[in-house]
Amino acid sequence: MELFFQQLTNGLAVGGIYALIALGYTMVYGVLKLINFAHGDLFTIGAYLGLTLLSTLGLTDHLGPFGVVIALAVMVMGLVAVVGIILERIAYRPLRESHRLSAVVSALGASIFFQNAVMLIYGARYRVYPHDILPRVVIPIFGLNVPLLRILILLTSIVMMAALYFFIQKTRTGTAIRAVAIDQGAAKLMGINVNAVIMIVFLIGPALGGAAGLMVGLYYGQINFTMGWIYGLKAFTAAILGGIGNIPGAMLGGLLLGVIEAMGAAYISIAWKDAIAFVVLILILIVRPTGLLGERVAEKV
């Protein structure tokens, strides 16, 4: 039973990270109907920027552990958001009117570009995060020792997701985003600045992805330039699992996938851990391509 609960909390923490990345996929898919393949690499960039800032700014000399993490998170999110906006401007906007698959190829190209840029700048080897930033404490919950970091990651991702949900549901900008997602043409006619909405989406999604990158760095302690692909694919799976284009779906899908994976690793086989997500992905696309929370849409003939 102990193993079960340890894997559950672990799965939830990782799932929270998946969910944060998945939100970026789902939001971009919602407004542009495009799978932003470069999103996973924005996550990688977040992780590496976190490392650079940590080692160059000397934040630890001036701030307490939580101050450091918060300052880092704010800077990383801001910087990755800028990268996201530039990405949209250069690689996607010129293709908005062309065939959908052209944009997909462009996204793939951007992903390859980012990944190799990170490799050329930081090298191909694993890079290690300093592991003394947050206190390595375990907190007893119901008699189980759960690492503090795990709880913090889960809490942070839940807070971010809740904030995003509130933003999308309750604010004017959020309404505009939802309107553009439903019908870009009609939204334009209603006086919504579609370009601005898309820009906001490319600000929020990458920011959350960057935050997830930082979390992975802090949680696992080491990062690699290719990690964006694997996390990206898993987060995308999470988005599909919940129903792509659907924000609560991405959250649900992320947490669910994290738990499924953790349980699979514990009870099936650790060697097949990475394959589990893909099996889930393939099954969901075959059985219910609209995901758990998605609606069925008939294709117009």
């Binding site: 495009l34 799978i35 959908r100 698959l101 997909v104 694919l233 995308f236 599909i240 060697a271 097949w272 990475d274 394959a275 893909f278 099996v279 992905l281 393939i282 696309l285 075959i286 391509p289």
Partner: peptide, 25 residues
């Protein structure tokens, strides 16, 4: 056979999944 009806970008992601599963296998 089971994935052939999937739309362009979905097919892309599933085929990526397959190649990874084969490699892991």
């Amino acid at each position: 056979r089971p994935i052939i009806h999937l739309r362009g970008d979905y097919l892309l992601i599933v085929t990526i999944g397959f190649v990874e599963i084969v490699r892991i296998a």
